[in-house]
Design a protein around this nucleic acid. Structure first.
Lengths: 262, 262
DNA sequence: TTCCTATAGAACAAAAACGATCAAAATAAC
DNA sequence: GTTATTTTGATCGTTTTTGTTCTATAGGAA
């Protein structure tokens, strides 16, 4: 894919990758960008000079100082590759003309990113980060629910948010969760976020799509949002344990596994 | 497609491409514009002189400085120093325990920045940018109104926003305007934004503080928000024309001039 | 600790891109 | 139509970038 690119382009790709993943290895960059390892090292040295990254043995990490500025939380970076591919797969389930709820979370954020190009879409979300790189895409209305800004998870919570949700009937819901278990159902670590999601579920007349990388499956956090049975479709990543498939499909959930390697 | 064009046209094409892609290569430009690489190099040198791009080996990247200004939008940059000092002065009018409306705009955004350190404050705003560098300040609740995201002015508009505003009674309003004239009153270039501000004015029981640098005074834009008489305090910058003072104070508006040099 | 493997860095050679110069072509001026 | 000016392209030496080889070093395992 990638040959015949100028150094500046290659370096900006490295910056993108390190912003996305928080960490890159010389080896993987060498393969991905199709240049020798020494070239990658030289690039990393240049970029270290500019301050966007810090070199380590075998690669480089995103600069701590810049990281803080960007407000990239650890959580956003965790399983980033999985979340991106889940986002891409989930976005395919959205059709032109849909009105969709999207709750907050690093996985659902990835879905929003991949909705570009859809037509006549209305997104209602309490994810405050959504506006960040949403440069006025034609054909897509982005509606924030409003509410109290909770910076830890970059989302909007409280009655104002719930009120807005209650004024909408959506055709689909993209729901991120923190835990997903047969016994306790869908759980969230923050009470108020669970409340918003609950309201969204009630106001969705069409498909409820749950996005969760495999680390969430089987996990239980503090606040119960809903039983698993509200989910129509579960989009998860490639390392899904096939042993669970039957048990999940038995309660009427369709499983979609996203592809590795974007 | 492309032969027989004058240099200026070719160069403006290059500018368009670099604005779009952020980066161009000499080689691809040479092919796309059907001229030799040396010509492209000369074009890039010329354009580098003008400051729109920075040359690199093999091509050029969009100028960092211009890029930054691009994101901030023309409006944010205009009279930045004035706006900052107005923001600082206006923030001093806010007391601990206040519940304040803040409408959207580059000047009011500066006010938000300087509210750090206040206690027990509740900010209700339709400025989507507010969350950007609001790192969870203790003692301050930031509440977004919700609404349709309007990327051109980074704000939230529409019924959802107005509904939220209508659920609040604020003790103060920080109001940015685009024009401020005796005859037409306070005006805004965007209909929906005027609507939000109107709702905020109605729901404010205390002080209405208008923040406007001197370039706004006397200007009229398209949509009337309110007559000037709704304003209690006008915070403007140091170059305020003292000849207008009496006339403005006569309608009951207190004038605060912010200091130059932050 | 000691060994071992993987990574880093230096030096050199090859390839690509650059800049300067000059001639040819296109355009403008007369 | 002729001349002057600008613009473009080609050549060639120079600089930058890249990859290979080799040596040194870091980090993990026994």
């Amino acid at each position: 894919m990638s040959n015949n690119i100028i150094p500046a382009a290659r370096q900006s790709m490295i910056v993108e990758l390190i912003k996305r993943d928080g960490l890159v290895t010389v080896d993987s960059l060498s393969k991905k960008l199709d240049v020798s390892v020494i070239t990658i090292r030289r690039d990393l040295s240049v970029l270290e000079e500019t301050g966007v990254l810090e070199r380590t043995h075998g690669g480089a990490v995103f600069s701590k100082t810049i990281e803080r500025e960007f407000n990239y939380s650890e959580k956003d970076r965790l399983n980033k590759e999985q979340k991106e591919s889940i986002g891409k797969s989930a976005a395919k389930l959205i059709e032109d003309g849909d009105t969709i709820f999207i709750n907050s979370g690093s996985t659902t954020y990835q879905v929003i990113r991949f909705l570009e190009g859809k037509k006549d879409l209305q997104i209602i979300t309490n994810n405050a980060a959504a506006v960040a790189d949403f440069g006025g895409r034609p054909g897509i209305d982005l509606i924030l629910t409003g509410g109290i800004f909770r910076h830890q998870s970059n989302c909007l919570i409280g009655d104002f948010a719930i009120n807005t949700v209650n004024m909408v009937v959506a055709s689909k819901l993209i729901m991120g969760v923190d835990g997903l278990s047969f016994k306790e159902g869908l759980t969230s670590p923050v009470y108020q976020e669970a409340g918003i999601t609950k309201a969204m579920i009630e106001r969705t007349q069409g498909q409820v799509i749950c996005v969760a990388d495999t680390s969430k499956i089987g996990r239980v956090t503090n606040f119960i949002t809903a039983p698993m049975s509200v989910v129509d479709t579960l989009v998860t990543d490639w390392s899904f344990d096939e042993g669970l498939r039957d048990k999940i499909e038995d309660i009427g959930i369709k499983i979609i596994k996203s592809d590795q390697g974007l």
